[in-house]
């Protein structure tokens, strides 16, 4: 058959075009469906929460039942403290074990670590809370910010470990070799070349884990417990936004429901801002598009 004999409009071209349209629309619908709940949550929370927002929300402590007004200043501070403690535990441990698994070992031990982190990331957070209760609360003799932060840190570890490992593995071998061949020691190569090249992805992973633990409620219920007053002490019970929202949401009081919405809005907003900040920090200085 000569080239001229082939008619490009022949055969199944029409069918393929229709099929292509069909599949493309299915994909588009799926994409919209996946974003729709998120947008709905975002707008509904904004709508419901913004009316209860005022300066008191950020500066006042919770008022007793019956009194109007009041805010969540203690919960906001508490969440910041808890997430900071969690990050101090989860990020270094996660990054270092990620480096170990990706760079320094190729034996059965690293496979065990990989398997365990996978299992750990699937464990319900309430069980991590029970673990923290047993390890920290019982040992220290009471609920504390440390116990809550510890629980959050444990939850962060698997996410940070696995993203670090995946990102490090994406760094091409020839970059490592280039650095080593220049007489740069192995740990400096890991740190300054491999980790730096993978930093954007790793920071994204860290961010995801922070965003996840910032909204954790269950593990905090019996670790950091909650506190109606402002507390900066690491050994005292401390309030947190998710727990405060939970308590307000299950209460029968309209005033508290409003505050819970406002709290939820602020929590989402903080995570949103965190995303933007990290995107700004990690924007590629040397992308060719500049």
């Amino acid at each position: 058959m000569k080239l001229d004999d082939i008619k490009f409009t022949d055969g199944n071209l029409q069918r393929r075009k229709i099929l292509n349209r069909l599949m493309l629309s299915l994909c588009t619908i799926a994409a919209v469906l996946s974003v729709a709940p998120l947008l709905y949550v975002f707008f509904y929370t904004t709508f419901s929460g913004i009316s209860a927002l005022n300066i008191d929300f950020f500066t006042q402590l919770p008022k007793p039942v019956g009194e109007t007004g009041g805010g969540m200043a203690n919960s906001i501070i508490g969440t910041l403290i808890l997430v900071t403690i969690g990050s101090l535990i989860g990020i270094p441990v996660g990054i270092l074990s990620g480096i170990y698994v990706a760079e320094y070992s190729n034996n059965i031990f690293s496979n065990i670590i990989k398997f365990v982190t996978d299992v750990l990331s699937g464990i319900p957070s309430i069980i991590i809370g029970i673990f923290a209760y047993g390890v920290v609360v019982l040992t220290m003799g009471g609920f504390s910010a440390l116990a809550g932060g510890f629980a959050l840190g444990i939850i962060m570890i698997p996410t940070v470990t696995r993203t670090t490992e995946e990102m490090l593995k994406l760094v091409p071998v020839n970059l490592r070799e280039a650095s080593l061949a220049l007489g740069v020691s192995r740990w400096k190569t890991s740190l300054k070349i491999v980790l730096k090249t993978a930093s954007t992805g790793i920071i994204t992973g860290i961010l995801l884990s922070i965003a996840r633990v910032a909204g954790e409620t269950a593990p905090l219920l019996f670790t950091s417990f909650g506190n109606r007053f402002m507390s900066y002490s690491l050994t005292e019970p401390i309030d947190s936004m998710p727990v405060r929202i939970f308590n307000y949401a299950i209460s029968p009081f309209e005033e508290w429901h409003k505050l819970a919405w406002a709290g939820a809005f602020i929590l989402i907003f903080l995570i949103f801002i965190l995303n933007l900040v990290v995107r700004f920090i990690t924007r590629d200085k040397y992308s060719i598009n500049n």
Binding site: P172, N174, Y286
Partner: peptide, 22 residues
């Protein structure tokens, strides 16, 4: 090994400049 690689440099098959550096 570090001194050795300072004395014995290496150029690779595929150009591999560090991507995050000028």
């Amino acid at each position: 090994v570090i001194n050795l690689r300072n004395k014995v440099g290496m150029v690779f098959q595929k150009p591999n400049p560090f991507p995050k550096m000028s």
